[in-house]
Design a binder for these strands. Sequence first.
DNA 1: TTTACATTTGACCGTTTGGTTAAACTATAT
DNA 2: ATATAGTTTAACCAAACGGTCAAATGTAAA
Lengths: 203, 203
Amino acid sequence: MTENDKQTEEKIFEAATEVFTERGMDGARMQDIADHAGINKALLHYYYRTKDHLFNAVFEKIAGQMFKKFAPVFDEKLSLEEKIRFFFKEHITFLQKNPRLPGFLLNEINRNPGRIKKLIQQIDVNKLWLILEAQHKDELKKYNITKETMPQLMSSIAAISVFPFAARGILEGIFEKMNINFNDYMEERKGYAADFVIKAIKK
Amino acid sequence: MTENDKQTEEKIFEAATEVFTERGMDGARMQDIADHAGINKALLHYYYRTKDHLFNAVFEKIAGQMFKKFAPVFDEKLSLEEKIRFFFKEHITFLQKNPRLPGFLLNEINRNPGRIKKLIQQIDVNKLWLILEAQHKDELKKYNITKETMPQLMSSIAAISVFPFAARGILEGIFEKMNINFNDYMEERKGYAADFVIKAIKK
DNA sequence: TTTACATTTGACCGTTTGGTTAAACTATAT
DNA sequence: ATATAGTTTAACCAAACGGTCAAATGTAAA
C-alpha cells in the first residue's frame, strides 16, 4: 500500500532519472525506463500520466539540485577567498558524484529554453549582490569585483566548474594520449580553479 | 546535372545542419529536413543513404570547424598575451555567428563519446606543447605555465569561451532581470576573458 | 527523335513509439 | 468470506517514423 506505493513510484523516478540523464528526453524510451524499474510499461502511465509529466518531474528535481549547490556560499561565514575555495570544492565534488547532470541540463535547456526561465525568475540576483557586498564590504576593495562585472565573473566560475563534465568526452579523448585520468584531473581542479580565479580577480 | 546536383546536395546539407543543430540527432525528423530544403523526403535518401549518414556528414563538418578555430593560435607570431587576446576575440566572434554549435556538439558527444575520439586521436598534444615551448621559451618563465598544468589551463580557457553559449538559456534568464543583453555580454567577454586569464597565470 | 542515364516524386511499407484498456491481482476493512 | 479500492499486467491501438520503390521527369549525347 502506501509503503509499497512509495517504493514503486520511487523506483520509477530513479529509473527515469537514469534513462533521461543518459539519453535525453528525445532519446529516452518509456519501455526502457520500465525495464530499468523492473515493471510494466503501463505502470509508468499510472503514476506519471505522460512522458512529459515524468520528464518534468525529473528535470525539475535535477535543476533544483544544481542551483541549490550555488546557494550555501552566501550562508557560510568565510572570507571571499575561502568562499571561492569552498565553492569549487563542494560543487566539483557534487558533480563528481553526478557527472551526467551538466550535459543533461545544458542539452534540455537548449531544447526548451522557456522551461528553465520559470525556475530562474525566482532568484533575486540583485539581492544576492547586496548580500555579498554587505558580507565583504572592506574586503571587496582588494578585488576587481563590481556589480557590473559580476555576470562575467560568476559565469566564468560556473564555466570552469561545469564545463569539464559537459565536455568530458572530448577531454577524455585528449587525456588518453597524455596518460591523464579524468578523475585525477577533476580532483586537482578543485584547487587549481580556486587559485586561478583568486589570482584573476586580485587588484 | 553537376551544377544542379551540387545545388540540391548543398541545400540538403544546409537544411540538415539547421535541423540537427536545433533539435539534435534524436529530435530531428527526416521530413522536417526535407521541408527545410524544399524537396521530397525520398531525395534525402538518394543523396545520403540513411539518417546516420546525413548526421555524420553534418557532425564531422561542425566538429572540424570547431577544432580548427583553436589552431591558428600556434601559427600567429604574437606574444603569449597577444595570443590569448587573439584567441578569445576570434573564437567568441566565431561562436557569435554560430551560437548553437557548442550545445549541439557537447550534447552529441555525450550521446556518443566514441565518435569524437577518432577526430581527437589525430591531434598530437605533445607536439603542440613543444611548439608552444619553443615559441615562448623565455616568455614562459613569467607565467605559471608548465606541461603539467596545461590541461587545467587549456580546459579553463575553452570553458570560459564556450560555456556561455552552451548555457545561453540559463544566462539569458538571469540577465533578463538585470537588463543585460546577451550579445553585449558576449562582446564585453572578449576582453574580460583575456584580462582574466592573463592575470590568473602571471607569476 | 531516340536512347540512355541521372534526378525527383508520390505512394507505400514495416517497425517503433507513446499511450489506452479491460481484466487480473493484492490488501484492507467490514 | 466478501466487498471495495488501489495496484499491476498483457494485449492492443493509432500515429509517427525511417526507409523503399516504381514511375515520372529532366538532360545530354548519338
